[in-house]
Design a protein around this nucleic acid. Structure first.
Lengths: 236, 236
DNA sequence: AAGTGGTCTAGACCACGCA
DNA sequence: GCGTGGTCTAGACCACTTG
């Protein structure tokens, strides 16, 4: 069963996506909504808060909640989305190749990143993402081994996130992400179709579990022409 | 006067930044905080919500709120931050040159972007940002003229945002941002120190006012080595 | 079982936009 | 002045973690 405010959120966001709530128009007032959904105003406000954060509406004091235009969709690297969720949307145009899966003794830099203690080992995973028959993304993952001892190729082929959350019962909760542009390494050139490209977009990801321990460090290396990042930002 | 929950937010975030609330430790419970701040629990929860969104804490049901490590700071292109706010942090290492300010009759593409009606004109502004004596960012702005009739070079030199909000009383409320990597144009090469660079990072920005009208379209074109984008993402 | 955060309520008052 | 959203309250019950 879903929360009440989540159901209200789903209901309204669906209406906006269908167009039965037109962009530019005003939502019913919070008091009206509280009546029609048979709930209190604070619960309505919780739903509207999320709608606003997700770019569905914009609230103006004294006026009301304006429905925004949500036609534009995009490559949603924003938030925490795994490649598997992404490739679902792309249908059969996307493929994953697991090129490497090995246990390593991490060097100092990586120990620093993963906050490893002496003797801890890590998994190093190389995966290449193919879109429309072109190898355009190279994902390089480092995971603390003791947290995921039973990792294997089939899991990497599918979704590490899924395995960790559903099989191991760990909760991935937040991540710090950093986007930079770098010069391709020999490794990049060997894995990707980089023909004439002189740069590569690097998305570094620090993934944390619910107990705030660092779980994974990932570099997702994208061919620049296939990279796109979209964000919705609010003032203050 | 500030809101109660904002004061609580400030108070706690300051304590975290100072280190008097250590990373890894637990915050007092919401009931305790409600007592010490002489307020209701919901108000405390509002403050904690923002602390969590801003990456200061992480909440776990049944356990408490864990203080996160916030030492790592970064080039905050995330959110809506103007170059002026940014350059404050950089001290005298940053400079702005206004290279162009003219009224134009927009072509079809731009009319589309700015949703201009027939006969509307726009401002086209070119600004080059210099950091440590190197010209590394080229900002190309298009603004609906009728919204900002009195624009001049001094304003562009300072901060267009500031002028629009403080002098004109308009409220900039949200933006859609898109990051891609492109091949430099002749224009880019003439404005920036691009020596051997083959790519340029383009941040396209659609800035909206409080009444949801599109106010400005901006392309911020960065030399790839000087570009960095940092984000804090939460699952779901 | 006790304590934590998560949800929900019904009501109050305030700040703002608009006619 | 009325209706809007913004803040705040005091209390209730639920879901979860930990001893």
């Amino acid at each position: 069963m879903m929360n009440k405010f989540m159901k209200i959120y789903e209901d309204i966001s669906n209406q906006i996506q269908e167009g039965s709530l037109a962009a530019g128009s005003l939502l019913p007032s919070e008091n009206d909504l509280a009546d029609t959904f048979q709930t209190s105003r604070e619960t309505i406000r919780k739903a509207l808060k999320i709608l606003s954060e997700d770019g569905y509406i914009h609230k103006v004091q004294g006026k009301g909640s304006i429905v925004l235009d949500v036609k534009k969709f995009a490559f949603p690297i924003s938030g925490l989305v795994s490649f598997k969720e992404l490739s679902k949307k792309m249908g059969h145009r996307a493929k994953t190749h697991v090129e490497m899966l090995q246990e390593i003794f991490p060097d100092e830099g990586l120990k620093e990143h993963l906050k490893l203690s002496r003797d801890d080992t890590a998994w190093e995973i190389h995966r290449v993402r193919e879109i429309d028959k072109e190898r355009v993304i190279f994902d390089k993952d480092f995971i603390v081994k003791k947290m995921v001892p039973g990792l294997n190729k089939a899991i990497c082929q599918n979704s590490i996130y899924e395995y960790v959350e559903e099989e191991l019962g760990l909760t991935i909760s937040f991540a710090k992400k950093e986007i930079t542009v770098e010069t391709p390494t020999e490794e990049d050139r060997s894995y990707l179709d980089l023909e004439g490209f002189h740069n590569i977009v690097v998305v570094k990801n620090f993934v944390y579990l619910d107990d705030t321990s660092l779980f994974q460090y990932t570099e997702s290396r994208h061919r620049p022409d296939k990279f796109r990042f979209v964000d919705f930002a609010r003032r203050k």
